[in-house]
Design a protein around this nucleic acid. Structure first.
Lengths: 192, 192
DNA sequence: CCCGAATGAGACATCGACGTCTCACGATTT
DNA sequence: AAATCGTGAGACGTCGATGTCTCATTCGGG
């Protein structure tokens, strides 16, 4: 059937457009539809044929971000090994999508009125579980809640991505910087 | 001279308008000039009499933010006591203005083209100095750069303010949560 | 080779936010 | 009381981004 073939091609193109849009908006959050179209290598008209409007595009990007971050969580295998090792893997896997996530993060707070996508809550829950496991296994301190630890992780990943974007931190140091600070804190430890 | 008297009154009103604008924009970053005027209790016309336009208003807000954060740094007395204690004071003093700072932070990245205000660099330098002192005095680890520690501090304060705004963290726990995580990290310490 | 679907280019209308202007009102000063 | 100043209300024009539409072109399958 040429019909399903057409649909498949559309889907592929859609995916490609989304990726390009994500890359552009990560660098320039205020990019307009014309710039997004140009970045994706298509015309503004075709962009509107794929996505009903800017809102629909952002929604689709949110889904993409959720899927990508979910994939990072999968790749990090959060319930294998000890929680410290799993957290290190999480940071490594999340770093490539950190900039895009930061964009969606700030974009969400501009919607303000509408309900946030359930996908984020599900991702949050997986990270909460990691921190809880670390606490139960005695690796993590218990005087800070998993909710706060999750927020702090997001904050540090976002700050790190931004610092790299601004050239204040080298990308190759990022994983290590985030993981070491988050795990050990600023204080010089006695045990070393 | 009634002239200088008029100027003084204008300045006072200006200050008041700026404070109200800061409060509103902290809650709703997309607020328009009409909403800002209403929040300040003046008409849109008068708002334009005080500030040439939205850009000028944002610039003035940036100055206010720099002044407020600078005041927080002063109040924290960064070069007294040991660096750990000073950092704790800094977090406590910075927390009330964290939301507003976060707004300016995200607002700055939308300008993108223009140069950033020197004031931020001066504030950064003061915090760098605190971290450097902590390293030199042996309180802070030396494998993380003061630049990264500063970015991380900003990230955690911003994430904390947002978490409070979202109701995920209690405001009264914020200081403690930020300071403990930043200083000690997630890992359960052996020394306790 | 022919036909249809998808695309690109551009014109066009819409919409919201912004900035400017005018006018009338109230308060303060003289 | 008269003049002046600051203000509020609102109309008006501008501008950029968005969304829709048309039409010529191109590409691929039949």
């Amino acid at each position: 059937m040429s019909h399903s073939g057409t649909l498949r091609l559309m889907a592929v193109d859609r995916e490609h457009v989304l990726k390009e849009a994500a890359g552009l908006l990560t660098r320039k959050a205020t990019a307009g539809m014309d710039e997004i179209a140009k970045a994706a290598g298509i015309s503004r008209a075709t962009l509107h044929r794929h996505f009903a409007g800017r809102d629909a595009l952002i929604k689709a990007l949110e889904e993409l971000g959720i899927a990508q971050f979910g994939g990072a969580l999968d790749a990090a295998r959060l319930d294998e090994d000890d929680a410290v090792t799993a957290l290190r893997r999480l940071i490594t896997e999340a770093e490539p999508v950190a900039g895009f996530l930061a964009f969606l993060y700030t974009e969400n707070q501009l919607f303000e009125g509408e309900q946030t996508n359930d996908g984020w809550a599900r991702l949050d829950a997986r990270i909460h579980a990691l921190f809880r496991r670390g606490q139960e296994e005695g690796d993590f301190r218990i005087d800070l809640t998993p909710v706060w630890l999750t927020e702090a992780l997001y904050g540090l990943i976002g700050a790190g991505a931004w610092a790299v974007h601004e050239g204040r931190v080298a990308r190759r140091d990022l994983d290590h910087s985030i993981a070491e600070l988050l795990l050990g804190g600023i204080r010089r430890s006695m045990e070393k």
